[in-house]
């Protein structure tokens, strides 16, 4: 045993000392550390899923079949197959056809297609939210008075539960008809998604655009750089660290908004619709109802992950001036 340890230690020491001093080697070393930390994150993510599955099954096995009821309120769910199907049943159901008809697609494909539809609508809503949010932030950054005038309304806007009015929005939309353009039902859903998405983006972008240090603003001033050059060369790059989380939050909001708006407007084709539809069939096919739920989770992850990808592309804008 000791022999092995002795042989391993110097080898490692040698590698470290070789890679430390050189600039390139250092950079390679940091990249490997980053890669290994990414792998670690993935491993932990997988471990988390397994743990949740184990807890689910353990509770299902050990918990009372009528759940835990305290003072008349059920604080833990029933453990019947109807309320909590087995993990393997739920996963297995994904591979089976969605209905008994011979031409039916497997459940996962139906859920996947619906999720893609919703993702498209959410993305459209997110994009509108980005444009509106950044536009508002630009106006508020440019004119202090606009910040005072607009910011309270932006905050108040989020207290209006637009989702609750989704059918109303839909009926408003159906009256919009400009030339060849005709309002589609999915646009109402996208509009609601954008309504939820623009808020964090506006707030984050405003904070980011206001974030440049005074010394940097003054530097631009000494270059006699006007508003637009300062915006492009200083404010937007400085805003990136604030924008990225805001965009991610906006993406998550857009997905939630799209799913809920689909449900309340009854839009066909999206995941919100099949969520309701399959839940209605749960008494006969309890595992099937979980398909769209998994789909919605994956949808949220994909949306947030896409924005995270943006963060990787823009990683140099997240640096700080301090020496590492």
């Amino acid at each position: 045993m000791t022999g092995t340890a002795d042989r391993v230690a110097p080898a490692e020491g040698g590698r470290v000392s070789r890679s430390a001093p050189g600039g390139l080697d250092t950079r390679r070393a940091t990249r490997t550390t980053k890669q290994s930390s990414q792998i670690a994150a993935m491993v932990w993510g997988a471990v988390g899923i397994v743990v949740i599955a184990l807890i689910w099954e353990a509770y299902k096995l050990l918990g009372p079949s009528d759940g835990v009821v305290i003072a008349g309120a059920r604080v833990l769910p029933r453990t019947t197959d109807l309320a909590m199907p087995h993990v393997w049943d739920m996963v297995g159901r994904l591979a089976e056809p969605v209905t008994r008809s011979p031409s039916a697609l497997p459940l996962w494909a139906v859920v996947g297609l619906a999720a893609l539809t919703t993702l498209g609508i959410a993305a459209a809503g997110w994009l509108v939210g980005v444009i509106v949010g950044i536009g508002l932030a630009l106006v508020m950054q440019r004119w202090r008075i606009a910040e005072w005038g607009l910011l309270p309304w932006i905050v108040i806007s989020q207290t209006v539960p637009l989702i609750a009015f989704a059918p109303v929005v839909k009926s408003w939309g159906s009256r919009v008809e400009i030339g060849a353009f005709e309002w589609q039902d999915w646009m109402s859903v996208a509009l609601i998604a954008s309504y939820l998405a623009f808020f964090p983006i506006a707030i984050g972008a405003l904070k980011g655009l206001q974030s440049p240090d005074r010394i940097h603003e003054e530097l631009m001033q000494t270059y006699a750089a006007g508003y637009w050059p300062t915006l492009v060369k200083l404010r937007f790059p400085a805003a990136v660290p604030y924008l990225l989380p805001a965009l991610r939050l906006g993406a998550a909001n857009a997905v939630v908004g799209a799913v809920v708006a689909e449900v309340s407007t009854g839009l066909q084709g999206g995941i919100g619709r099949i969520l309701i539809q399959f839940a209605g069939q749960a008494s006969g096919d309890p595992a099937k109802a979980w398909g769209p739920i998994f789909g919605a989770i994956v949808l949220g992850l994909v949306a947030a992950g896409s924005v995270a990808l943006l963060g990787v592309i823009l990683k140099n804008y997240r640096r700080t001036e301090e020496a590492a």
Partner: peptide, 19 residues
Amino acid sequence: ARLDQEYGIAFQSAGLLPW
């Protein structure tokens, strides 16, 4: 003079753009 870029300036702290 500032608008005409008559001077170059180095501040007390470097003030480099980190990105």
